[in-house]
Design a protein around this nucleic acid. Structure first.
Length: 566
RNA sequence: UGGGCCGUCGACUAAUGGUAGGUCAAGUGCCUUUGGAGCACUUUGUCUAGGUUCGAAUCCUAGCGGCCCAGCCA
């Protein structure tokens, strides 16, 4: 059996170890009669990317399947890196992906409660104020192989600690001069348990609480308790937090609060792409890309602008599975799901990126023939449109070869091809410029083949797209390629970082593409298939009269494979 | 090197002691008014060595390999 659960409807759903655990917990009523509660907890210090989409789909998907709820919670405990711009983009991106949260929370909503809990732990002798500097604390922590040493301040009594902590909160001490630490075990083989810092003194304006606080809780002292406050049953996070789980549990246990349960799964990695906020931020700040929403970025705002649909990303996330194996997914997998979705929904149009003029010598000079074209062969309800056909047309430069290579089926002297939805034409002669490049092809057409079929049953090997010269609409088209030239952008020679692997040709701008006239009023965000070329969408930079399209993804190209083989 | 986690087709992921299956990629053929889409077929896999068992990808032991941890980041 390839799936964990065949429901009565016959629908089957791929399972994973987290979903299995949820099913089991529900069966054993581990959390009582209540159903599950999940959460998506981003830190608002950057834009969401495809990797976050996996977590979002997991958290919201789990709750949706079992009738539970999902909160969006901002883990905003480090004001130095966090901004309102990021919370705005994150809420927008989660919505765009297609999810609606139940509760919208901020760790900063819990600062008072967290502070009270810190006081309780101090009173219980489970936390102490340490006057050691950051540097000294590091030295006392020991190493991977050697145990740590107790701080000289570890055995202060509760009363003194209470007093000191209160004064920390009131702002009596300078930044970094003291911290509050949990009193656990300086010899623990798990470094996270060697008296972790709970609070630090930090005078930084917080995007929500302003200057109210000058002490801020660390992730470890905020995350589990925030989960607990929200009665999160299954707190899923990525693998690097596995070592934090004992600490997560320790705080919950000491405090005697709702036992949220942390479970870890593998982070998404993709070939040819970087999914690290820090590195993406560098690309933005150092202007290797135009912004967080540059269509080459793996951010949700980037892929949205690129033309990816939320459905395609959800399908992708559902298909890639959830495990604890550390692997790297083939970017082709993502592209497959984008093509699959766009194939169903994108109307077909004709557009010529690199125009070559074709003159049909025997076609009447002034005649315009409106030919019928099908909008989407995958969707009959998309209907039909007409496209103007006339004596002078543009075809793709690639679709004509004066000397055709082997297996080249397109237009060449003496060969007949079909102009899609138009007529059969045969190339007769060429006009060249002074450099010897073909700049014009003269053809004849067969009037009997209107619509694309020959009454005598004659076949042609190839069908090519075209645009009527007199009716064409000009547009800028931006072609994107991989941002990095190598599968693993982090793999570099000594002394270089990932920017050394940037693809210098990741953006190609075509300024004067020729589009069929139906595209003249195309609106921002609209998605099309340019026949034989790929999927394209209207960029926000686009204006009527000054159209801009982004190539989302090219169509699969078996001619390219033939060429590569020979 | 102490601790934690993980090793299944090229990639991702199932098989929960009982037929190693699916998706992507690759390839072959069919079909085609997109060299698109679709359809059919094909190739390749349980890290190694022992052990337990009627039976092991699954359990045990030992190796080997990978990832994470020594922030007052998350």
């Amino acid at each position: 059996m390839s799936n964990g659960n065949n429901s009565e409807s016959g629908e089957s759903r791929p399972s994973n170890f987290i979903r299995d655990a949820v099913i089991d917990d529900l069966k054993t009523k581990k959390f009582g009669e209540a159903t599950i509660q999940t959460r998506f907890p981003p830190e608002p210090n950057g834009y969401l990317h495809i990797g976050h989409a996996k977590s979002i789909c997991l958290n919201f998907g789990l709750a949706a399947e079992f009738g539970g709820k999902t909160n969006l919670r901002f883990d905003d405990t480090n004001p130095e890196k966090e901004e309102q711009e990021y919370v705005d983009s994150i809420t927008q991106d989660v919505h765009w992906l297609g999810f609606n949260w139940d509760g919208l929370h901020y760790a900063s909503d819990y600062f008072d409660q967290l502070c009270d809990w810190a006081v309780k732990l101090i009173g219980d002798g489970k936390a102490y104020v340490d006057d050691l500097s950051a540097d000294e604390i590091r030295k006392h922590r020991g190493t991977l192989t050697e145990p740590g040493k107790d701080s000289p301040f570890r055995n202060r009594d509760a009363k003194e600690n209470l007093n000191l902590f209160e004064r920390m909160r009131k702002g009596e001490f300078p930044d970094g001069s003291r911290v509050l630490r949990a009193k656990i075990d300086m010899a623990s083989p798990n470094l996270n348990m060697r008296d972790p810092v709970m609070y630090r003194i930090l005078r930084a304006d917080h995007h929500r609480t302003g200057s109210k606080w000058c002490i801020y809780p660390m992730y470890d002292f905020a995350h589990g308790q925030s989960d607990s406050i929200e009665r999160v049953t299954h707190s899923v996070c990525t693998l690097e937090f596995e070592d934090h789980r004992p600490l997560y549990n320790w705080f919950i246990q000491q405090l005697g609060i709702f036992p949220s349960q942390q479970m870890e799964f593998d982070r998404l990695n993709l070939t040819f792409t970087l999914l690290s906020k820090r590195k993406l931020l560098k690309l933005v700040q150092e202007k290797y890309v135009s912004g967080w929403d540059d269509p080459r970025m793996p951010t949700l705002s980037g892929v949205r602008r690129r033309g990816y649909t939320p459905q395609s990303i959800r399908n992708f996330c559902g298909a890639i599975g959830v495990s604890k194996t550390n692997g790297t997914l083939d970017l082709a997998m993502l592209e497959h799901f984008v093509r699959e979705d766009l194939n169903k929904r994108a109307p077909r149009v004709m557009a010529v990126l690199r125009p070559l003029k074709v003159v049909i010598d025997n076609f009447p000079d002034a005649e315009v023939d409106q030919v019928d074209a099908i909008n989407n062969p995958e969707d009959e309800s998309a209907g039909k449109r007409t496209v103007p056909f006339s004596k002078v047309l543009y075809i793709e430069q690639d679709d004509f070869r004066e000397v055709p290579p082997k297996q080249y089926y397109r237009l060449s002297p003496g060969r007949e091809v079909r102009l899609r939805y138009g007529y059969f034409i045969t190339a007769q002669s060429v006009v060249k410029n002074e450099k010897g490049d073909v700049v014009e092809v003269h053809c004849t057409y067969d009037p009997a083949t209107r619509g694309g079929n020959s009454p005598d049953g004659r076949k042609v090997k190839s069908t090519i797209h075209w645009v009527s010269s007199a009716h064409a609409v000009d547009a800028e088209v931006r072609l994107y390629d991989k941002l990095f030239t190598v599968e693993d952008p982090d793999r570099t020679e000594e002394g270089h970082d990932f920017t050394a692997n940037l693809n210098p040709n990741s953006l190609e701008v075509i300024s004067q593409a020729k589009l069929e006239p139906s595209l003249a009023s195309a609106m921002n965000g609209e998605k099309y298939q340019f026949e034989r070329l790929g999927y394209f969408c209207v960029d926000p930079d686009s204006k009527v009269g000054n159209l801009v399209f982004n190539r989302t993804v090219a169509l699969k190209d078996s001619w390219a494979r033939v060429q590569k083989r020979s």
